[in-house]
Structures are given as structure tokens and as C-alpha cells.
Design a protein around this nucleic acid. Structure first.
Lengths: 211, 211
DNA sequence: GAAACTCGATCGATCGATCGATCGGAGCAG
DNA sequence: CTGCTCCGATCGATCGATCGATCGAGTTTC
């Protein structure tokens, strides 16, 4: 499991970002600014100051302000998708265990990278269609994973749903919302407890009633 | 000389906004622009053009760009809170019926005013603390309504939960997410069906297992 | 005619982006 | 080792465009 890179600011990025070079500091500063003030509310000068460089230096690492945001968003969706895959690899063959694994991956990912998750979802619409395409693809892939697990459970008769699409949306929203409410109350709630609780709640939504 | 320029608007506001005067058109145009480009990405000139007036005219109806956004956000949270109250009034005394009523109010409100709901939630953090205070108050009140219904159900032994806060967050996120996914697929899914489905899903999260 | 409303023009500030100049370390020649 | 070149990274300065906001004059309404 990857170790996350933490800066003094609370802006946490996946380890794939790498060392504490200028590019990494620009991404961290950019994430923090984009989280606090949004895309159009953040100037490249703000980001540069946060990274301890001049604004012109940014263009030595990114073609444009939009490309920096696109890079952050793809990072977020990549990390999320990777965690879902990893979770399924260790989950065995029981649809119940697979759903628990997916929800736990949602929770841990959105708790650990709350800032990144919020920015990746909220600011995706600020990108041009071309710049947003890679992230949208990853987003669809992640959703398909959830859909696949649920459909398989239904086919095996373990899960029963009137409207699978609605139920999947409900489960996904439960998972993503962790990024919004967990961080402020992280001091009195363990991540593992949230994982177990939300996993059981998700199971209640899909499980066939026991006779 | 006023020409009624109806934008291709999916920008829907509560009836309390009133007639088709300049102020109303500014709010509608503002909502649409804020939804598409965000607060800092929307200029007062964009809003004015959308409303068919000059940018200076905006300041005859709002003290600042921020006040226009604050007005929209409060409108959204007021409408949401009012609908929750109304729903409870007609729900009787059974906690199950009350929870169904609340979830249905979430669904209908976030389906009918999807744009407003998204803007009201996403752009709230762009407001200064003073400007955001009224909306935050309404937000807390709405959450308290949900918490009150659930707590009452627990006290009566109808509901059982390990972690009420997590469960309430899950229910609320299920409801608010309707604004994100329902509109694009509105053509093949009735609002009433979504209400019934999500209400039953919410009940599964809190209902004590029947022996 | 008073009041409310809207307009065109314009303010200083800040935006994203670009430019040539400068810095510092790696590599090579002797 | 010294002296030199080279090159990517970074800097300070600056571009045209656009930002939120303001003003006085013109228009509409009653």
C-alpha cells in the first residue's frame, strides 16, 4: 500500500506525485488553493507563492493553469480507481465481501484524500471537455466496478433490488460524502469504524431479506 | 423597451422569487451562470447579459456580486428547509412515515431545483463567513430535523443504529445526490419512483431487524 | 415633476500568460 | 584540480484582457 506525502498545509496527494521538488510543491499548493477558493478563484500567483516560487516558474512544469488542475483531478480519480481494484483483489469471491471491500475503499480513500476528492469532483466541470476526458473515463470505470459487483450479486441471488441504478447511486454517494463530513469530526471517530459501519449499511441496501 | 429574453434555462427558482422582473431575471441568469462556471468564473457582465441588462443595473438590485450569490444560496436552503417542514406536517406520528416523508422531500426538492441545490451547496464556501451565516443556519436546522426524527424513532424502539451520526450522513447524502444524477436520466425514471425507492432504502438503514 | 430604473463610460486592480535575463550544477578539456 | 561551456530551472518585468464596482446622464413610470 502506498504511503501518502503530507505537507504542513493538510493538502495530501498520493505517493505517485513523488519527492519534494518544485513540481510536487506546486501540486500541493495548487490543491490547497483550489480546495479553498476554487479554480477561477485561485490565481497562478497564489499557487506559486504557496510553492515558494515565482508565477512564471509554474509554466516550466505545466502548460497552463488548466493543465495543473487536470493533473490533480486525474491523480484523484486514478488513486480512487486503483484502490477499488486493489480492494477487489483481496476480497475473495463472495459478493458481500466484495461490496464491503469497495465501500471500505471508498471510505479510506475519501478520508485520507478528502481535499483531493472534493476538488476532483467539484472542479471537474471547470475543465474543457478534452481536458476532463481522462478523468471522466476513470470515473466511469470506477462506477462500473461497483455496478459489476452488484449485478453479480443479483445474478447469484444474494442481492435483491427494485432499481439497481438508484441503489448504486445511493451507495456511491454514501461513500463519496465521507470526504465532506469525516475530516471535521475525525478526532472522535476511527476510520475503521466508519468503514465497518458504512459497509454494513451498504449491505442492508442490497441484501435479500432473510426468511 | 424590455424584451423578455427567456434563456434556455433549466435555471428553476422557487415561486417566492416572483414575477419576471429584472431582479428575477438576474437571479435566474445568475443561477445558470454560477452553475456552469462557478462563482469566480462568472462575471457580473455574464449575468447581466443573461438577464438582458447592463452590468451596472445589477447594482440597483444587489449590493454586490457576493450578495446575489448569497441570495440564491439562501433561497435554496430556505426552500429545502420549508419542504422538510411541510413534509413532516403531513407525515403523522410514526417515525417510519416521518422518515419516508423527509426522504421524499429531499428527492422532490433536489430533482426540481437541481441547479439551485448544487450551487447552494458547492458555492457556499465562496461566501464570507458573515454572508454565509444565514444559509449555514438553515442547513443546520434541516439536519436537525432529520436527526430529531431518527432519534425519536430510536427512543421508540422502532429504529436501531450503531452510529446514528454516520447513518444520518448516509441518508442525507443519498438525498442530496439526487440533484447530481437524476436530471440527466430524468427521461426514463419517474420522480415518484425515486421517492419510494430511496425512502425504502433509507428505512433499511435504520429499521430494527424483524424477528 | 418625483422616484425608480437603466444605460454607456470608466476607474484601479488583478487576471493568465510570455519574455529575455540570470542562476547553478553537470560534464568535458587540459 | 581549474577553467569553461552548456542547459534546464527560475526569476523579475510586463503584456493585453478582464475583473468588480462606480458615476452621472438619460429613460420610464405613475
Amino acid at each position: 500500500m502506498n504511503v501518502s506525502v503530507r505537507t504542513s498545509s493538510g493538502a495530501v496527494l498520493p505517493a505517485s506525485v513523488g519527492a519534494d521538488d518544485t513540481r510536487s510543491r506546486l501540486l500541493h499548493a495548487g490543491l490547497e488553493m483550489l480546495f479553498e477558493r476554487g479554480y477561477h478563484g485561485t490565481s497562478i500567483r497564489d499557487i506559486a507563492v504557496g510553492a515558494g516560487v515565482q508565477s512564471a516558474t509554474l509554466y516550466g512544469h505545466f502548460a497552463s493553469k488548466e493543465e495543473l488542475l487536470a493533473e490533480l483531478i486525474v491523480l484523484g480519480h486514478e488513486e480512487h480507481h486503483r484502490r477499488l481494484i486493489d480492494a477487489l483483489m483481496d476480497a475473495g469471491t463472495d459478493p458481500r465481501d466484495q461490496l464491503r471491500a469497495l465501500v471500505s475503499a471508498y471510505v479510506t480513500g475519501h478520508a485520507e484524500f478528502a481535499m483531493l476528492a472534493i476538488v476532483a469532483n467539484a472542479e471537474l466541470s471547470r475543465l474543457s471537455p478534452e481536458a476532463a476526458a481522462p478523468a471522466r473515463l476513470l470515473c466511469d470505470r470506477s462506477r462500473e466496478l461497483l455496478m459489476t459487483v452488484v449485478s453479480r450479486g443479483v445474478r447469484q441471488g444474494v442481492f435483491v433490488m427494485d432499481h439497481p441504478e438508484i441503489t448504486i447511486n445511493a451507495i456511491a454517494s454514501m461513500g463519496t460524502s465521507v470526504a465532506l463530513w469525516y475530516p471535521p469530526s475525525a478526532d472522535h471517530l476511527d476510520v475503521g469504524v466508519v468503514c465497518d459501519t458504512l459497509s454494513e449499511l451498504a449491505l442492508r441496501l442490497v441484501l435479500a431479506p432473510t426468511p
